[in-house]
Write a protein that binds this DNA or RNA. Structure first.
Length: 533
RNA sequence: GGGUCCGUAGCUCAGUCAGGCUAGAGCACCGGACUUUUAAUCCGGGGGUCGCGGGUUCAAUUCCCGUCGGACCCGCCA
């Protein structure tokens, strides 16, 4: 039962081992083992797109860990047509439905095309996570003719391709239509064309721009009949065949995929093997990310949870933790989970540095996981771990004018910082996350408070005491006295004050806080309540 | 119609590269300690037929088959 631990003991190491074993059996060259991910370019990249990258990259890292040369290919699908205008973008874009996203102008005006803009959003988040990749743009790949041999083979064997599609998913379309979308030379659309004949001698595909129904909606064609030169990037393979082509042309040995394209992968595996005579890459299928309501998180549904949103509240490593900690199974996801992942990352770091003891097997795995989260560049020394909710609490309570000082002082008194020790970069980062968090989700609410006569008197008394006192302890005492003198339970009185001052039933020790907040501000707040009541 | 995932403590979930002794964590809850307490803190406690039924095994929450419930994906395009 005590099997050797593979690599760093994670799922990815095991996957890498399987890839190697398979490649060995196939007797293929292993100088460089490429993994691949698809970069969507037709909508805002959501968090799942990053998952694809993270997992494929983890396999690349695992392969390297086992002593092999490996790289991740990021293949940008910028020749895909626009099928739907994403929520949040101008309806004007509808006129570009069916156009390759790389030939649609950038609606934000900052990049050369719509597709570039979208794919760069994802690449930016990959960079933030430290994921390295070799970038391929479909547009360029086709223009340079990198897939030319495969396209020819597929078109020459279109009949067989059609049969495979029919056998696997029962779709008959490709028994008559070629698995190739020419770009219409007249109207510029790509999804509207129907390719019906391939002329091998001239590398031309004949087509008619007929239109296509997508999700119950017709994208109209212009009726143009023409021919397209497959050597010039004037079209692309449909997905039933394109994976296969690029696997072979780019020599891909591993690709993870979401279950939504499982059928497509199945078909492409067969095309790859049976038509292109190339053993398809090893695969791993993962589930989609669902939001808490059980809905698939997708670009068009409007519930866009982008990596950028995550980075507002949590670190890139915590996002990688989410992606990597578990491979199988549906993950439900919500912004409110971010603090938990931030804390879990701290836990992993504690295990990594031996501050927390767990079983050997467990420790190996968790340390490995941390290394993957840091893309094999784990921190050299432990950082200071302040629980997310504490930090959120502190920044919420902290007076704006002296936030850092207040937080520093509190952290010192709670023992997270030594006396005289100041905030370091990582703590500053945590403060930023917590600030965004409280700003966006825990707006201090204006609570309406009705006061009894005793409470009014107590507050009035407190106000006059506050005017005179400037010592934290004396103010603290004044509060207790104001309560007692008016027959109130101190605990209840404190609760009321917290409600008035910060909209929460509890908070930091009031004496010092009143001073930190500015005594006059506190007095003003109390007077407001008195006058309203 | 085809397929996948989930179902473990009141809640959220670990336990999924490797099946093994009394199944864990966080939160919540209860009790105690300390305190003019205040994300309090410290100590202790209850609580689980690991959805259900079979099978493989010396041993299954873990593997296999079936079944119920929940969700998702595909079935047009990609």
């Amino acid at each position: 039962m005590s099997e050797e631990t593979v690599g760093r003991g994670t799922w990815y190491d095991m996957m890498a081992k399987k890839v190697i074993e398979r490649e060995r059996q196939l007797g293929r060259n292993m100088d460089k083992i490429r993994t691949e991910m698809g970069l969507g370019a037709s909508g805002f990249p959501h968090i799942g797109s990053l998952g694809d990258a993270a997992r494929s990259y983890a396999v690349t890292l695992a392969l390297k860990g086992l002593g092999f040369n490996s790289e991740l290919v990021a293949y940008c699908d910028d020749k895909d047509g626009l099928r739907k205008v994403p929520v949040g973008l101008s309806k004007d874009l509808e006129k570009y439905l069916g156009f390759p996203v790389s030939s649609i102008p950038d609606p934000f005006g900052c990049h050369e095309s719509y597709g570039k803009h979208m794919s760069l959003l994802l690449l930016e988040s990959l960079d933030k996570c430290g994921i390295e990749y070799r970038y391929f743009s479909a547009k360029e790949v086709y223009e340079k003719g990198l897939l030319l041999n495969e396209i020819r083979t597929i078109l020459l064997n279109a009949k067989k391709v059609g049969e495979i599609v029919k056998e696997e998913v029962g779709q008959e379309r490709y028994t008559e239509v070629l698995p190739f979308f020419p770009v219409c030379s007249n109207c510029g659309r790509i999804y509207t064309t129907k390719a019906f004949k391939f002329e091998p001698k001239t590398d031309k595909v004949l087509y008619k721009c007929e239109g296509l129904e997508i999700r119950g909606r017709l994208i109209e064609g212009c009726g143009h009949e023409g021919e397209t030169d497959i050597t010039k990037g004037e079209g692309k393979l449909t997905w039933k065949g394109e994976f296969a082509a690029r696997w072979k042309a780019l020599d891909i040995r591993f690709e993870a995929y979401g279950k939504d394209i499982a059928d497509s992968v199945k078909i492409n595996d067969r095309i790859c093997r049976e038509v292109l005579c190339f053993e398809s890459p090893s695969h791993a299928k993962y589930e989609m990310f669902l939001d808490k309501g059980g809905k698939k998180i997708s670009k068009s549904a409007g519930n866009v949870f982008t990596p950028q949103v995550w980075f507002r509240y949590g670190s890139p490593q915590s996002l990688l933790l989410l992606m990597l900690k578990r491979f199988v199974g549906t993950r439900t996801l919500d912004v409110s989970d971010i603090p938990a992942y931030m804390n879990e990352l701290d836990y992993l770091e504690d295990v990594y540095f031996g501050k927390k003891q767990v079983g050997d097997k467990e420790a190996t795995k968790l340390r490995g996981l941390l290394e993957y989260c840091y893309v094999m560049k784990p921190p050299a020394k432990p950082s200071i771990h302040v629980p997310y909710n504490l930090m959120a609490f502190l920044v919420k309570m902290a007076p704006k004018e002296c936030l850092n000082d207040y937080v520093t002082e509190k952290l010192q008194s709670y023992g997270y910082l030594q006396k005289n020790q100041n905030l370091d970069a990582s703590l500053m980062k945590r403060i930023d996350y917590a600030l965004n968090w409280t700003r966006d989700f825990e707006e201090i609410k204006e609570t309406v408070i009705t006061l009894t006569d005793e409470e009014k008197k107590a507050i009035t008394e407190l106000i006059s005491k506050l005017e005179a006192e400037n010592e934290p302890d004396k103010i603290q005492n004044a509060i207790f006295n104001a309560a007692k003198n008016n027959g109130l339970q101190p605990s209840g009185f404190f609760k009321m004050l917290y409600n008035i001052l910060m909209g929460a039933p509890q908070g930091p020790r009031l004496g010092p806080y009143v001073l930190a907040m500015g005594k006059q501000n506190v007095i003003a707040a109390l007077q407001r309540v008195l006058s309203k009541s």
